[in-house]
């Protein structure tokens, strides 16, 4: 499948994946994240069951302290 991840096209060798699988595959190890699939918020508790499929627009925003 092909998805848009943070405004960039990415190919994955499978038909669907959970948010958790995406984070694992991309080696995103940050914990302070805001994740959206097609503009819809995915809460942390749902990372293991939220499904990403072909054509989805996924944002993984990493936020850090300081201000």
């Amino acid at each position: 499948m092909q998805i848009t991840l943070n405004n960039r096209k990415e190919e994955f060798d499978r038909n669907t994946m959970t948010v958790l699988e995406l984070l694992d595959e991309k080696n995103f190890t940050f914990r302070m994240l805001v994740i959206k699939i097609n503009g819809q918020l995915v809460k942390k508790a749902d990372y293991g069951k939220a499904i990403i499929k072909d054509g989805d627009d996924v944002s993984v925003l990493h936020l850090i302290s300081g201000g």
């Binding site: 302070m32 994240l33 805001v34 959206k36 936020l63 850090i64 300081g66």
Partner: peptide, 25 residues
């Protein structure tokens, strides 16, 4: 960062469409 995420999640969930301008780094 925890508070930044709380605000983003709250606005996305309860105030959809509202623009947020965040600071990070």
């Amino acid at each position: 960062a925890e508070m930044k995420i709380m605000l983003a999640e709250t606005v996305l969930e309860k105030m959809p469409g509202r623009i947020i301008i965040m600071g990070s780094g």
